[in-house]
């Protein structure tokens, strides 16, 4: 039961990151490998804010700061690194993204050093940090993580399906040229996508710190790859797919970790599941099938 809750929490985090991957992929048709490092930057933003402010509202302020910084960074990388390459080959963009990822990691290492920094983000309500039902105890931060993840996902789904900007995003991901002909400002939509993706990454970094309270310059790379895997499991480009894939992967990871015999092979198991799923559904769980044409 506890494992399940923890798994759902981790799954929520993966889902948030995977949403960033899948939205950018769906709309800009690029794999944004620097996404994981935006999480890392968000975590450092929280670390710096928390070490400067000591009041009870510090957590909220820290989250806000992280969201603002991550969004700004997402926009900046999009503008400086990816926009000049719009229309270039996908591999060139991929390599630039990798370059940006290295760049962010090395800057973080230059500023903060390679040692891990402790961040305490335990949320307490009325002085308690976990609730106990019978023999199951659930930490408040898990509950907060789960609740916020669900709220964010519902909000995002509503935003995409109900608002004009959301519909424009769907249109661009469907067919960029046609969307442009319909009067949609494609550049603005791509910028918006990057902004939303990066803001989600900031939330993900908050929740990540609640689970694992320390920051290193390479914090983002492994969750980044895992979330990318989750996005592919769900069918890359599909938003509900990313959510399902993320949660699935998180639950599997926690369950594998809880069995001592399997624990060392956790990563291998997750990736093996990816391969198996792709073998049976080559475009992921919810991916669209593309007809091939010459």
């Amino acid at each position: 039961m506890n494992t399940l809750i923890n798994g759902l929490c981790l799954g929520g985090i993966y889902a948030l990151i995977a949403l960033g991957y899948t939205m950018v992929y769906g709309i800009a048709k690029m794999l944004n490998f620097a996404h994981g490092d935006i999480i890392m930057v968000g975590a450092y933003a929280i670390f710096v804010t928390l070490s400067m402010i000591g009041s009870p509202i510090a957590t909220v302020v820290a989250i806000l700061v992280a969201v603002v910084i991550c969004t700004a960074l997402g926009l900046l990388t999009e503008r400086v690194a990816y926009r000049p390459l719009r229309g270039a080959s996908p591999l060139a963009v991929l390599i630039t993204a990798i370059g940006v990822s290295y760049l962010l990691q090395s800057i973080a290492q230059l500023i903060f050093g390679s040692q891990s920094k402790p961040v305490s983000m335990q949320i307490k309500i009325a002085g308690v940090d976990s609730l106990t039902f019978g023999n199951v105890s659930i930490s408040i931060s898990s509950i907060v993580t789960l609740a916020l993840c669900i709220i964010i996902m519902v909000g995002l789904t509503l935003f995409i399906n109900k608002t004009k900007a959301g519909c424009a995003m769907l249109a661009v991901s469907e067919d960029r040229a046609a969307a442009q002909l319909m009067g949609i400002n494609v550049n603005a939509i791509i910028t918006l996508t990057f902004a939303i993706g990066s803001a989600l990454a900031a939330f993900a970094s908050t929740f990540y710190l609640m689970q694992i309270p320390s920051v290193t310059p390479t914090l983002g790379s492994m969750p980044g790859i895992k979330a990318f895997t989750a996005a592919v499991i769900g069918g890359i480009g599909s938003i509900p797919g990313a959510m399902i894939g993320g949660i699935l992967l998180g639950v599997i990871e926690k369950f594998a970790l809880s069995i001592p015999f399997l624990a060392p092979y956790t990563t291998a198991i997750e990736f093996a599941i990816l391969i198996i799923i792709l073998l049976f559904r080559p475009t992921g769980l919810l991916g669209k099938k593309r007809r091939e044409k010459v």
């Binding site: 760049l103 990691q105 090395s106």
Partner: peptide
């Protein structure tokens, strides 16, 4: 870390 910084910059500039 500077190594990766320089490496990353070389990468980005060359690709661009």
């Amino acid at each position: 870390a500077l190594k990766f910084l320089i490496y990353a910059l070389i990468l980005i500039v060359m690709v661009m």
